[in-house]
Design a protein around this nucleic acid. Structure first.
Length: 190
DNA sequence: CGGAAGATTTCT
DNA sequence: GAAATCTTCCGA
């Protein structure tokens, strides 16, 4: 069961929490890949110094999709070599999104290994850049509608709040006070 | 038009 | 702990 538009058009922190345990699906030309979302981070526009849409550059070519309504893919290139996949959340004109930081491979594992050029399961999708490479998510996926058939998220197992561990976000030391917000969520089991 | 920086990964 | 590496954004 594919998540619908209403799921995404809510408060970013709620969407971030509820995305845990859901299944990310990419129907690529090479084949289909699926994975359970196990780690996310929330980025809340004007309330969040770490968010790309926070600063002076209110809206730019890169962050434009964050101003859409929820349910779109925000993919950007970082450090010139790695893509990061975000799910745009909340209503239109509210530039917020959820970064998918890690997944647990479900389907198309051989394809992922081939793309990542490794055999180690643990090393396959445990990072934003890694899972994007494993699932072939790149700038071509920028702005895709997650309510479409190419890239989407479906219902997975239900995660109870007790299993969700909030922690500080990673690699945003430049973000001042915002760097201490507990806006990174991981599934505390496995 | 040039320069600087970055929501990372990998190897030493 | 440091390098790799390049698109995007800002200032001039």
């Amino acid at each position: 069961m594919k998540l619908d538009r209403e799921f995404y058009e809510r408060d970013t922190l709620i969407v971030a929490n509820e995305l845990l345990g859901k299944i990310l699906v990419h129907n690529s030309p090479d084949g289909i890949t699926k994975g359970i979302i196990v780690e996310v981070e929330a980025y809340c526009g004007h309330n969040d110094e770490a968010c790309h849409s926070y600063k002076k550059n209110k809206r730019s070519g890169r962050t434009n999709v964050m101003y859409y309504c929820g349910g779109y893919a925000y993919v950007y290139l970082i450090y010139g070599m790695y893509s990061c996949f975000n799910v745009v959340s909340n209503a239109a004109d509210i530039p917020e999104a959820v970064l998918i930081r890690a997944i647990e491979p479900l389907e198309g594992i051989e394809l992922m290994k081939h793309r990542r050029n490794t055999d180690k399961m643990k090393n396959l999708c445990d990072g934003p850049g890694k899972l994007c490479k494993a699932m072939a998510i790149d700038k071509n996926c920028y702005g895709l509608d997650l309510c479409g058939d190419i890239l989407y998220i479906e219902e997975g197992e239900n995660i109870v709040p007790e299993d969700i561990l909030p922690t500080k976000r990673i690699n945003i030391d430049y973000a001042g006070a915002a760097k201490d917000y507990l806006w990174r969520f991981v599934i505390d089991r496995i």
